[in-house]
Structures are given as C-alpha cells and as structure tokens.
Computed example of a mutant assay.
Amino acid sequence: MAHYRAPDPKREQFRRYLEKAGVVDSLASVLVALYEQPEKPNNALEFVKQHLNSGGQPSTDTEALQQEVIDLRQRCARLADENKDLKSKLQRYEPDDGAPAE
C-alpha cells in the first residue's frame, strides 16, 4: 500500500520558484530536444549544457554585440552611400577614358 506524504512546504515553494523562473520549461524543452535527436550524442550532459546556454534570455554581452552589429551595419551603409556620392562627384572632374581634364 502506498503511503501518502503531505507536500513539504519548502519543496512546493521551491518548485513554484523554478516554474515561475522558467527553469522547468527550459529543462523540459532541452530534454525533449535530446529525446528527438535521431543520433544520441556521446555526451548527453554537454548537449544539455550547450542547449541551455543557447536558449532563453540573451546575455548582456550578446545584447551588446547585437547592438554593435546593428550600429556597424548602419555605419557601413552610410559609408557606402557616401562613397557612391564621392565617386559620382569625382566623375564630373575626371573623364571616363582616363585622359586629364582640360
């Protein structure tokens, strides 16, 4: 006969904390991903570590790097436009055949 054990209040509080923080969902999704792998990895713990690190909220470093990429792409586009404008201005002063302008 199974004995019924009343839930420990500390254990229940900790379980609710993990659920609220998204830990339970993250672990479940990683374990499902591992289960669905056609070829199981040799190191299951490493698989879990990698997938836990890749999921969820991006780190502050990641956010900073993403913002830097956005800024650099915008700067590159501005410089490309400026380069195009300067080349067109230069064409006014230099003929196409390379001969000096008179």
Rank of each mutant, 00 (worst) to 15 (best):
S59H: 07
S54Y: 06
M1W: 07
A6K: 14
V32S: 02
K87E: 11
A101C: 14
E102T: 07
L72I: 09
P38V: 08
Q37N: 00
V48L: 03
A28P: 01
A28F: 04
D25C: 04
Y4I: 12
T62S: 11
A33W: 05
M1Y: 05
G22N: 12
Q57V: 12
M1P: 05
P95D: 07
N43L: 04
Q66L: 15
M1D: 04
S26K: 09
C76T: 06
A6I: 11
A80I: 00
L72D: 05
V48N: 01
N43F: 02
D8A: 09
Y4T: 09
K87M: 09
L31W: 07
K10V: 10
R16F: 09
L86V: 13
A64T: 05
E63Y: 06
Q91S: 08
A101R: 13
R92L: 15
S59D: 01
Q57I: 06
G56M: 14
F14C: 03
D8M: 11
L90K: 14
K84S: 10
K89L: 12
P7W: 04
P41S: 05
K20Q: 15
P7C: 14
R5Y: 04
E82S: 14
D61V: 12
T62W: 05
E94D: 12
G22R: 12
V30A: 01
A77F: 04
A28Q: 06
Q57M: 11
G55H: 11
R92V: 13
E19W: 00
V48S: 00
R92F: 02
Q50E: 08
L65W: 05
E39V: 07
S59C: 03
A44L: 10
E39G: 04
D8W: 06
K20F: 07
E46W: 01
K89Q: 13
T62V: 14
L72Q: 13
Y35E: 05
A44V: 06
R15D: 08
K84E: 11
S29E: 00
R92C: 10
A2N: 14
E63D: 09
K89V: 02
C76I: 15
A33Q: 07
R15C: 04
Y17V: 03
V23F: 14
E39R: 10
G55V: 05
K20R: 15
P41V: 04
E94I: 12
S88A: 15
A2I: 03
Q37T: 13
K20Y: 08
K10P: 07
R73E: 14
Q67Y: 13
V30H: 01
E36A: 09
K87N: 14
Q66P: 01
R75N: 11
Q50I: 04
F47D: 02
L31M: 12
S26F: 01
M1Q: 09
K84A: 12
Q67E: 13
V69R: 08
L45E: 10
T62Q: 10
L90A: 15
R15T: 03
R92H: 08
D85I: 08
Q13L: 01
V23T: 05
K10E: 15
K84V: 01
P7T: 13
L90C: 14
Q74Y: 10
Y93L: 15
Y35I: 02
S88R: 15
A21T: 13
R5L: 05
Q74I: 08
A44K: 07
H51M: 02
E102M: 04
P41M: 01
Y4P: 02
